[in-house]
Amino acid sequence: MRTAEAKAIEARKVSKRVAAPEGMLQLLDGVDLQVAAGESLAVVGPSGAGKSTLLGLLAGLDLPSEGQVWLDGHDLATLDEDGRAGLRAGRVGFVFQSFQLLSNLTARENVMLPLELAGSDAAGDRADEVLARVGLAQRGAHYPHQLSGGEQQRVALARAFAPGPRILFADEPTGNLDQRTGATVGDLLFDLNREFGTTLVLVTHDHALAARCARTLALDEGRVVE
């Protein structure tokens, strides 16, 4: 096993194939990628280009058919599913297009969740602090269905940043929001990213949002095109 020190994320010759009714389907084909600690990278491309597949592989949510991925210096292939989950706990944050808040927890409890999973003793205080930072100090006791889309995504941002992750993966974070709300959420995302010094991998269709990242990686039909 070798480690890719100083690099938050590294992917080498990563390919992903899945079985489909018409035969094997190539989702990713030999993708090489390095993201330095604190760097922000936008992954862009048309629908079906393999952006979300790549994000899943980089975050250790899935394993590649070929190639290797290092996350925060750990070779993901050497870890089992629980090992990869343990690696993510407190270290990796996520923001999704569909928010993915747990409907049976309040906004505050949603934010506390990753803190508790990482073994934090002061999850409640920290959650209150971060909720206040995203402007939702008064909405902590609300359940997700009682919040607007923009508010839900801000709770998701608070949840992602609360444990102070080293790496943040964001999958179309403004895709489900209207333009104005999307812009507000985008601003908040980048502000927080700066404050926390987090490494950011952002999958998006939104070129304006992508442009705010330090670097852009374009994918088409599973390959890096620029």
Binding site: E81, R88, A89, R91, V92, F94, S103, L113, P114, L117
Partner: peptide
């Protein structure tokens, strides 16, 4: 199922 996937994503072990 969705909640369980989110928990796993946030670093929860299978046991948790």
């Amino acid at each position: 199922a969705d909640g369980s996937a989110v928990l796993r994503c946030l670093g929860a072990t299978r046991r948790f």
